[in-house]
Design a protein around this nucleic acid. Structure first.
Length: 552
RNA sequence: GCGCCCGUAGCUCAGUUGGAUAGAGCGUUGGCCUCCGGAGCCAAAGGCCCCGCGUUCGAAUCGCGGCGGGCGCGCCA
């Protein structure tokens, strides 16, 4: 919305210059147009002169001067200047910004959604925690990032599906069965030794107690009992996980079982493909994958000498299955402790004939909870990890989600529980929500004063001449490029930063300028501005999965 | 030993994919409510962008070498 106009201006100038012979046809034009952080430099800045200089063997300053001369004919821009060593700075005319506001307000928030994806089908796989225990805080961060990323991609022209992968065929589920079995014996008064490699968390004991209380029939033989309990416990825990996720506002389109890969035969198919292409080879009685063909990584085992598949094998099959379901791009969101696994999986999709870029990874760094200024310890081994539910119950869903998105996902996150609970400007969640509530309050007052707030489309935007008002309009239209940039880079945290930023401009404006006044024309114009602003805040909060309250 | 991530204000972190005089919040100091929500606003102080070399018109950003922190390196799952 905003870039396109600036881009059009520049490309038209270049085209004109070509036609008149001032620029040759065969030049590379990989210049950029950006909004300079220094306000005094205008709305836009381009480095085109620097890009052309070496190609034309001319000084950047001379090229800039030539282009600026041509830009002066444009009906859209003003204050076109050459700055520094050859930057071209320019602004759009106020009237154009005012018109943009009007267009945005009348066409709605969706007119600010960029079509970055062009309808591409994307599968985002995230959380994928095994049902052997409740979700902890790290899973929560992954859940928030994955969910917000999918909202983001949906808004930017992608067809998104969210998937949760469950390793139900592995040993961990069996371990859960043994853990439950022993706790059950314990509760029945038998003396048992509980090995340290079993799940230590209290939830296992609770579950065993529940099985006794409810009189769930457990098969007599030890092996049968363990196998039964593995299934029972895991599906019980999985229900709990789904429940937690639901309350956290994260809903999946599909839960994919590892066991289904074996049932469908796609594991065999995968191995066959790799053998046929001679990407798999035998050595020491095992079957190996030639990772080195594609990535700087060691070769890895697909089938162990005891005949069992490794997890790597079923993971390759799983990704083949994803592609077979006609997804164009796959996004895998993992805990950062799995980063060493990336090269081999990336190699595997290339081995299957896909581009490396078709599988993208997002790593989630660990979360440290801070309470009373000190880190809260969490160790899975002792079973004393902090669960997502505990944090959600303590600080609320809104703060929880927002905080998870205040950092780049692959950076450590310090989650200050006390701050998340504060209801003051120190807490960014409230800062943003407060702006929304404040605007709603103004609208309530306006209606009470008899202003028809549903019909502002004929408001005269040319009355919005304050620096702060034009600046707010720029920030509103910028939503477009924020969505575009975060979608391209898979960085949903940019949206939260944008919200904090734009809302700050609003609070400042509000403090300085009265919206409702005697001048009805001006009042209506300002209300129109605020309605567009409110729509952006509301949509941004919705994207992050945080409520936009009308009153607080 | 090898690989990945990180190192920016006292603290927690951004930095528009290589742009101009490096930003925000918290904390510190000092101001603003006869007026639409003070859960807000304004201002000041605070910097060797870990260090060095290189790439170029231009580097916090890219490359190489160090230093410091985190994580990962199995025919484990």
């Amino acid at each position: 919305m905003l870039r396109p106009i600036a881009a059009k201006i520049i490309s038209k100038v270049v085209e004109d210059a070509r036609k008149s012979g001032s620029l040759p046809d065969d030049i590379r034009l990989n210049y950029i147009i950006e909004t300079p952080r220094e306000e005094g430099f205008g709305d836009y800045s381009t480095n085109i002169a620097f890009i052309l200089a070496p190609q034309l063997r001319k000084r950047p300053l001379d090229i800039a001067a030539m282009l600026v001369e041509r830009m002066k004919g444009s009906e859209y821009c003003e204050s076109i200047t050459v700055a520094g060593a050859g930057f071209i700075n320019f602004s759009l005319k106020d009237s154009l910004w005012q018109q943009l506001l009007k267009d945005t307000a009348s066409m709605g928030i969706k007119s600010l959604y960029p079509n970055t994806g062009g309808g591409k089908k994307v599968l985002i796989e995230f959380v994928s925690a095994n049902p052997t225990g409740p979700l902890h805080i790290g899973h929560g961060r992954g859940a928030a990032v994955g969910d917000v990323l999918s909202n983001l991609l949906e808004r930017t022209g992608h067809a998104v599906a969210k998937e949760y992968y469950i390793n139900d065929a592995g040993r961990q589920i069996k371990t859960l069965g043994r853990s439950t079995f022993l706790r059950l014996k314990e509760l029945r008064g038998e003396a048992v030794e509980y090995p340290p490699d079993l799940y230590q968390g209290d939830y296992v004991r609770d579950l065993a107690g529940r099985i006794i209380d409810e009189g769930i029939p457990v098969p007599p033989g030890d092996e049968e009992a363990i196998s039964f309990l593995a299934g029972y416990a895991s599906s019980f825990i999985m229900d709990g996980i789904k429940n937690d996720l639901g309350e956290f506002g994260v809903n999946f389109d599909n839960f994919f079982l590892e066991s289904s890969l074996y049932a469908s035969g796609i594991v065999e198919e995968t191995l066959q493909i790799l053998k046929d292409r001679e990407i798999a080879y035998e050595k020491d009685g095992a079957l190996w994958f030639r990772t080195g063909l594609y990535e700087k990584d060691e070769d890895r085992v697909l089938i162990k000498s005891d005949g069992e598949n490794t997890y790597f094998t079923s993971d390759i099959a799983y990704h083949l299955d994803k592609f077979k379901r006609s997804f164009d791009v796959l996004v895998d969101i993992w805990g950062s402790d799995h980063h060493g696994y990336i090269p081999r999986l990336s190699a595997s999709v290339q081995a299957l004939g896909r581009n490396k870029e078709d599988l993208r990874f997002l790593l989630i760094q660990f979360v440290t909870l801070i309470k009373d200024g000190k880190p809260v310890g969490m160790s899975t081994r002792s079973g004393e990890f902090t669960t997502l539910r505990e944090v959600m119950d303590e600080v609320g869903r809104d703060a929880c989600r927002f905080f998870f998105l205040m950092r780049k996902s692959d950076a450590h996150l310090e989650f200050d529980l006390d701050l998340a609970k504060k209801t003051s400007n120190e807490n960014p969640v409230y800062y943003v929500q407060y702006a929304h509530a404040r605007i709603e309050s103004i609208f309530r007052n306006a209606r009470e004063a008899g202003v028809d707030t549903n019909n502002l489309s004929d408001a005269d935007c040319t009355l919005l001449t304050l620096k702060e008002e034009l600046d707010l309009i720029r920030w509103i239209t910028r939503y477009h490029s924020v969505l575009d940039g975060s979608a391209r880079s898979l960085e949903p945290h940019r949206v939260t930063f944008y919200l904090i930023e734009i809302v700050g401009r609003f609070h400042s404006y509000y403090n300085k300028t009265r919206v409702l006044g005697n001048d009805m024309g001006l009042t209506r114009a300002r209300l129109l501005l605020l309605s567009a602003l409110r729509d952006v805040i509301r949509d941004g909060l919705d994207l992050v999965g945080v409520s936009a309250p009308e009153k607080m």
